[in-house]
């Protein structure tokens, strides 16, 4: 009996995971000999990496234990600089929601305008092309200097980085609505507002949502970088704080969590995109 493609893919995924974890585990195992003998008083002042030849890289078991530890108490609060990973994630998601929400509010109406008017489209094109590829980290000093508030700066950076894919996709979606449909609307003497909402919007919706899906991915990428820079709260700050302590275990844990949340956000928009697609 042959398994279905889906089942075989799952088996392969599991095998890859197991091989990867095993290789990781073996690669970081410490040498038990521990190098030259050390004066015990001196050894007390040194870390395990130096005394026992333990690799600075944690193994999968360390990371697993850390994950469980974080999952047990995700919302602890030991003061302004030491909060649980759940609270940090909450802050990051809140910032992304704010920046991304603002971007949606601007990009979709503006994209509509650009898509419907070839002249506006050409006029704005050079600005979009120049601003689109700018890295979030390049925006940060400017934002801090002009906005004069680090929280608002982080939100601004998410906004400015996630606005472009939505804008470009919306404009493209609107511009490429099939001429026949627009002509039909015209012969039926549909008003401009009605035409925008009942003909163009449904036709362009799949492209718009693809843009939104790209944007949410970018927003989530940007938040980590932005929070590493401004600090205070958020998952990016968590990574920075643990890096400061050279705790690679916590950094890997955070990477896993960031990936997981990013995937969830992406899946949410993928669902929405599927809901608005239509067969032609």
């Amino acid at each position: 009996m042959r398994l279905s493609i889906g089942a075989r893919a799952s088996v392969l995924s599991a095998v890859i995971l197991v091989v990867f974890l095993l290789a990781w585990h073996i690669a970081v195992r410490g040498t038990t000999t521990g190098g030259p003998a050390m004066d015990p008083e001196y050894a007390k002042l040194m870390g395990l990496t130096a005394t026992q030849g333990k690799s600075a890289m944690p193994g999968p078991l360390d990371v697993g234990a850390k994950l469980i530890e974080h999952a047990r108490r995700p919302f602890y609060d030991n003061g302004p600089n030491d909060k649980g990973i759940g609270i940090q994630l909450g802050w990051s998601i809140l910032r992304v929601a704010a920046g991304y929400g603002l971007a949606v509010l601007l990009a979709i109406p503006l994209g509509f305008l650009i898509g419907m008017s070839p002249m506006v489209s050409r006029a704005l094109d050079p600005f979009i092309q120049i601003l689109k590829p700018v890295s979030p980290l390049a925006w940060m000093p400017l934002a801090l200097y002009t906005i004069k508030d680090s929280g608002a700066s982080a939100i601004f950076v998410i906004f400015i980085c996630s606005v472009w894919p939505m804008l470009v996709n919306t404009a493209f979606g609107v511009a490429s609505v099939r001429k026949e449909w627009l002509n039909v609307a015209r012969t039926l003497e549909v008003g401009p507002w009605r035409r925008a909402f009942t003909v163009i919007l449904p036709a362009a919706a799949p492209t718009i949502l693809t843009g939104m899906r790209i944007s949410i991915g970018i927003a989530w990428l940007v938040i980590v970088a932005a929070e590493m820079l401004v600090g205070g709260t958020g998952i990016g700050y968590f990574v920075w704080n643990e890096w400061n302590n050279l705790s690679i275990t916590n950094v890997i844990t955070a990477i896993l969590v960031i990936g997981l949340v990013g995937m969830l956000l992406d899946q949410m928009l993928a669902r929405a995109a599927r809901a608005v697609t239509f067969p032609e």
Binding site: P80, P141, D149, L229, V230
Partner: peptide
């Protein structure tokens, strides 16, 4: 007083100048 850990000198300078 809330003592807030900050990521770098440039940021601490800007945050102080911003009155945060």
């Amino acid at each position: 007083v809330e003592v807030v850990k900050t990521a770098g000198w440039a940021v601490i300078r800007d945050k102080t100048m911003n009155k945060e």
